[in-house]
């Protein structure tokens, strides 16, 4: 097993307000880690810090560069005039790569097939339902072939069938060696996939 993420004494502050304090965590390839905790305890901040969207105040993050983050809400961009296939292709973008290759387009098609959304390829985001959007954003994350997948409440608002399907996909992804961190409130998620660790965050600390 290869280490995909190591957090050492991670601290995040907004001004003088401590959001995360001394968080230590190791996630290996093929592992699923659940992060639980009440609202406002710092779960999303932890995910965004790992994804590089929030700067840490102190501590260290050692992380694979092949990381995909699916936020809880991406509602602010739903009016953007783009087709689903255009959005999913963005998952293959990397810092030193300006153009899509044929293999990128194949990866996008494959991830759409995996999530069973090939029929939505030419639809615009604003025409999709909440469940369809969740699948689109997961497909986008998968087509970048991530080694570490960060999912912030991926099942929020999904019906039972979609919930079951999503975990079926996640189990397959885990079995290919991808490490997955899932923020969740639902205890029923524990029945869907066996996590290597369940971490509860309380007042910015792992309890």
């Amino acid at each position: 097993m290869t280490e995909r993420l190591i957090l050492k004494n991670l601290c995040v502050k907004y001004g003088n307000l401590k959001i995360l304090e001394d968080v230590n965590l190791t996630v290996n390839s093929g592992e699923v880690v659940f992060i639980t905790g009440q609202n406002g305890t710092g779960k999303t901040t932890l995910m965004k810090t790992i994804a590089g969207l929030i700067n840490r105040s102190s501590g260290d993050i050692f992380c694979t560069p092949k990381i995909s983050y699916v936020p809880q809400n991406e509602d602010s961009n739903l009016d953007f005039p783009a087709k689903v296939k255009e959005i999913i292709l963005t998952g293959t973008q990397r810092p030193r790569k300006l153009f899509y290759t044929r293999s990128d387009k194949k990866a996008a098609m494959k991830s759409m097939q995996t999530l069973r959304i090939s029929n939505l390829a030419n639809r615009e985001l604003k025409t999709l339902s909440g469940g369809q959007l969740k699948r689109v954003f997961l497909a986008r994350a998968l087509c970048g072939d991530p080694e570490l997948l960060l999912l912030d409440e991926p099942c929020a608002g999904l019906d039972a069938e979609s919930h079951e399907f999503l975990y079926e996909v996640l189990r397959k992804i885990r079995d290919t060696g991808t490490a997955i961190i899932i923020v969740t409130h639902a205890e029923s998620d524990l029945d869907e996939i066996k996590p290597a660790k369940v971490i509860n965050i309380s007042h910015g600390r792992i309890s």
Binding site: A51, G52, P65, P71, F80, A82, E86, T90, R94
Partner: peptide, 20 residues
């Protein structure tokens, strides 16, 4: 820069999460 401009216009936070 077409693909990049598309990405930046669509969602900057997401672009940053890809290391852009």
């Amino acid at each position: 820069f077409y693909n990049r401009l598309f990405l930046i216009s669509y969602n900057e936070e997401y672009a940053k999460s890809l290391g852009i």
